[in-house]
Simulated scan of single mutants.
Amino acid sequence: MTKQYILNLETSKIELLHFSKEEYKSLTTDEQKSIRRAYMFAGSRSAWVSRSTKNHYSAISVAKQLGFTDGGKIGERLSYAEKVERQVEKAEARIDRYEKYADNAETRAKNLQKDINSMHGDIAFFTQPIIAGHAGSQRFARQREKMFDRYHKGFEEYRKSEYFRDKAETAEQTASMSKFKSRTYLSNRIEESNKIIREYERLIVRAEETQNEAFIETLLEKMEYEIEKLAYLHNKMDEIGGVQFNKDNLKAGYLVKIRGSWAVVVKANPKTVEVKYEVVPYTLKYAYAKIQEMKIPEGWTEKKKETAVNPFEVEDIVVRTAIYSDEIIKAFQVVKKTDKSVTIKEIFIENNIPQRNDFKIGSQERRTVKQDRNKNYVVNHDDWFLYKYNSAV
């Protein structure tokens, strides 16, 4: 029977078909190690399944090296909400199982230690010396040693019971879906999901350029799943009241509590808040979802915003000239502007004249606007200043 590997859409894992334990045992030691690195044996499916759920490159490489061929896909892909529901069901089943394991281990511990515990108060049992060559004394020594050995094994069972109770507690957290009640967790996952979607969009554009239809189909499936996940996360965020704070309701000088400590707001950015703690000599940035509380200090007044001056306009040309002549070394054209910066792109120069709209190949650069020692407005460009080109073109 042909050995095949398949992608199970329901679990998002690679499975090795028609591969028995006997065949596994017949492999070389190195081959067995390579399988264990990429796969684990799932008793519920009686098959080797990949450890990976997203990037299956290693799992597929191992399968091909062992002579497996691509068997395609089986099952139906679960939505993100369905996967979460499945995780909750499994966690609930684990709670009962781990608690039973813990109870059994605790019972074994008590049974192993009951002999020694029953001797508490019998000083002779613990202090009686052993007489060399005396049969009764030697027999007592062996009996006492066995009791102590069982007593120490009891501690191992108690440790096992604590381990299983910790596992049960972790399973309870999963079953309660507590992480979906945390603004910080949801905010981080939403940001990750948006980043993944942007990456898929970029890859789809590249795949369309190369007309790689199979890759496009795979990317669209993954992107659909990620969009479903993003919608689910946003819904969970809405259920707990959404993100309470943002750049519209925070001002410089406000106090915010993050991770249990209060800090002063230095700047409210579109996605993050920049704060200063009293004991930290620099500012730190946090997502708005991490803010636990906010309060306005007594006597707080809003600082007047400084009027930013940026005299440069879109389509203006800025140049860098030689130190001891009027030769133009580099020329750029302004394509965007803000109150404090400009976005520029390099243009060609002919006969010492910048050529408007004749752009060189390359990316745009965002640069700050400042004043030189003579109070002239310039564009800061690495270790040089760019001045406005005033000659007619």
Results as ranks from 00 to 15, higher is better:
residue 9 L to M: 10
residue 9 L to H: 04
residue 19 F to H: 05
residue 21 K to R: 11
residue 26 S to A: 15
residue 30 D to S: 14
residue 32 Q to H: 04
residue 35 I to H: 01
residue 37 R to E: 07
residue 40 M to Y: 11
residue 40 M to V: 05
residue 43 G to F: 05
residue 48 W to T: 04
residue 49 V to W: 01
residue 50 S to W: 02
residue 51 R to P: 05
residue 52 S to W: 04
residue 52 S to T: 13
residue 55 N to C: 06
residue 75 G to V: 02
residue 75 G to A: 03
residue 76 E to F: 01
residue 77 R to Q: 15
residue 81 A to H: 10
residue 83 K to Q: 14
residue 85 E to H: 13
residue 86 R to T: 13
residue 86 R to V: 10
residue 92 E to T: 15
residue 99 E to N: 13
residue 99 E to V: 09
residue 101 Y to G: 00
residue 116 I to Q: 01
residue 117 N to P: 00
residue 135 A to P: 14
residue 143 Q to W: 04
residue 144 R to H: 04
residue 147 M to G: 01
residue 154 G to T: 05
residue 156 E to S: 10
residue 157 E to W: 01
residue 158 Y to I: 08
residue 160 K to V: 00
residue 160 K to T: 03
residue 163 Y to H: 14
residue 163 Y to C: 05
residue 168 A to K: 08
residue 168 A to F: 08
residue 176 S to M: 09
residue 178 S to Y: 08
residue 179 K to C: 04
residue 180 F to Y: 15
residue 181 K to T: 11
residue 181 K to N: 14
residue 183 R to L: 13
residue 184 T to Y: 06
residue 188 N to I: 04
residue 188 N to D: 12
residue 189 R to T: 07
residue 190 I to E: 11
residue 192 E to R: 12
residue 197 I to C: 10
residue 204 I to S: 10
residue 205 V to P: 00
residue 209 E to S: 11
residue 219 L to K: 06
residue 227 I to R: 15
residue 235 N to E: 13
residue 237 M to S: 02
residue 242 G to C: 05
residue 242 G to S: 08
residue 244 Q to W: 01
residue 248 D to T: 15
residue 248 D to E: 15
residue 250 L to F: 02
residue 250 L to W: 01
residue 255 L to I: 11
residue 262 W to D: 13
residue 263 A to K: 00
residue 271 K to I: 10
residue 272 T to Q: 12
residue 272 T to D: 12
residue 279 V to G: 01
residue 282 Y to I: 06
residue 283 T to C: 06
residue 288 Y to V: 15
residue 288 Y to T: 14
residue 289 A to Q: 04
residue 298 E to P: 02
residue 301 T to E: 14
residue 303 K to S: 13
residue 304 K to N: 13
residue 307 T to E: 14
residue 312 F to A: 07
residue 313 E to Q: 14
residue 316 D to F: 03
residue 316 D to E: 09
residue 316 D to I: 04
residue 328 I to V: 13
residue 329 I to F: 01
residue 340 K to G: 03
residue 341 S to L: 03
residue 356 R to K: 15
residue 360 K to N: 08
residue 361 I to C: 00
residue 362 G to N: 08
residue 364 Q to E: 15
residue 367 R to V: 11
residue 367 R to H: 12
residue 372 D to W: 03
residue 373 R to G: 12
residue 377 Y to V: 01
residue 378 V to M: 04
residue 380 N to K: 09
residue 383 D to H: 00
residue 386 L to G: 00
residue 388 K to I: 08
residue 391 S to T: 04
